[in-house]
C-alpha cells in the first residue's frame, strides 16, 4: 500500500517532492526577507506607511513668496498707505511677484512693478462671474491707452473724483488764460464738453472752434458787443481783408497773454 500523505510525521518522512519544494520555498521566502531588510528605506514606517524622511525633505523646499510681513520690515510707508486703502487685503507679492530672493538680497534682486493695463485688468475687467460690488471696468471704454496708475495709485487705488473744473486737469491752460485778454471768458464760451468728458476724457472729447467766423462773432468789424460782457471792447478786424487765407489761431493763440 502506498505511503499516505502525512506531513505531520516529520520532515524526513515526507515524500521527496515535498522536501525539495520546501527547501525551494524556504529559500525564496528567506530571499524575500533578506531583500526587504536591505531595500526598505530606513525611516519607512516610523510614522505610518511611508518614508518619514520624505516629510522633512518636502519641508525644506525653497520658498519663493516671502509673505507680506517681510515687506513691512523695509517698506513701512507703502505698507501703511496700502493698509488704509481698498487694496489693504492685496499682498505685495500679488503685484510685485515672488520676491523671497529680494528679502535676502535687496540690491541684487529688485522686484518688478507691473505698469501694463493688462495686469490691473486681470482683476478689474468686467466679468459677470465676478462678485457684485467688486470694482470692474470695461477696459475698452475706460480711458484706453492710459496706464491705470496715472489716475489710480496701486497702493491706494480709490478712484479720483471726477474733476469739477476744467482747471483740475488743464491747469496750464487755465493759468495762461487767466492773464490773457480772454481771462473773462469761461472755457465753455469756445468749447462744448459732454459731461461724461470728466469721467472718460478721451472717449468724449470737447469741441474746438473750427472757423474764422467763430472768432468773428466778437472780433469782426461789424460784430455787436458780447451780450454778457457789454463793457468789453474786443479788437476788431475786417475778416475779408485780415489774413483771409489763415484761420485765426494760426497767429493768435487764444489762451495766451500775447494773443493779440
Amino acid at each position: 500500500m502506498a505511503r499516505p500523505f502525512a506531513p505531520w510525521r516529520g520532515f524526513a518522512a515526507m515524500p521527496q517532492q515535498v522536501r525539495r519544494l520546501a527547501v525551494v520555498i524556504v529559500l525564496l521566502v528567506a530571499a524575500y526577507f533578506t531583500a526587504r531588510h536591505f531595500l526598505v528605506p530606513r525611516t519607512f514606517g516610523e510614522k505610518g506607511h511611508y518614508r518619514a524622511a520624505a516629510v522633512d525633505s518636502i519641508a525644506v523646499l525653497p520658498i519663493h513668496y516671502a509673505g507680506r510681513e517681510a515687506c513691512a520690515m523695509c517698506h513701512p510707508a507703502e505698507v501703511a498707505k496700502k493698509a488704509g486703502s481698498f487694496h489693504r487685503g492685496v499682498s505685495c507679492e500679488a503685484c510685485h511677484g515672488p520676491e523671497a530672493a529680494h528679502t535676502t538680497d535687496p540690491i541684487g534682486h529688485k522686484p518688478t512693478a507691473p505698469r501694463d493695463r493688462a495686469f490691473c485688468v486681470r482683476c478689474h475687467a468686467y466679468d459677470p462671474a465676478r462678485p457684485t460690488g467688486f470694482p470692474q471696468i470695461d477696459p475698452v471704454l475706460h480711458n484706453p491707452v492710459r496706464n491705470c496708475f496715472t489716475c489710480h495709485n496701486p497702493h491706494d487705488p480709490t478712484p479720483p473724483r471726477p474733476p469739477e473744473t476744467c482747471a483740475a486737469c488743464h491747469g496750464e491752460i487755465a493759468r495762461t488764460k487767466a492773464v490773457s485778454p480772454h481771462a473773462q471768458l469761461a472755457c465753455t464760451e469756445c468749447h462744448t464738453a459732454d459731461p461724461r468728458h470728466a469721467q472718460a476724457p478721451r472717449q468724449f472729447l470737447p469741441s474746438k472752434p473750427a472757423s474764422r467766423e467763430f472768432c468773428g462773432r466778437c472780433h469782426a468789424s461789424d460784430a455787436p458787443p458780447p451780450a454778457h460782457l457789454p463793457d468789453a471792447r474786443p479788437p476788431k478786424v475786417d475778416l475779408a481783408t485780415h489774413g483771409p487765407r489763415y484761420v485765426c489761431w494760426q497767429c493768435h493763440y487764444p489762451h495766451y497773454p500775447e494773443a493779440r
Partner: peptide, 14 residues
C-alpha cells in the same frame, strides 16, 4: 530538483 523517484508511490503522490 533532483527528485528522480519514479516509484508507484511517488507517482501517485504527484
Amino acid at each position: 530538483l533532483g527528485v528522480t523517484d519514479l516509484s508507484e508511490d511517488a507517482l501517485r503522490f504527484d
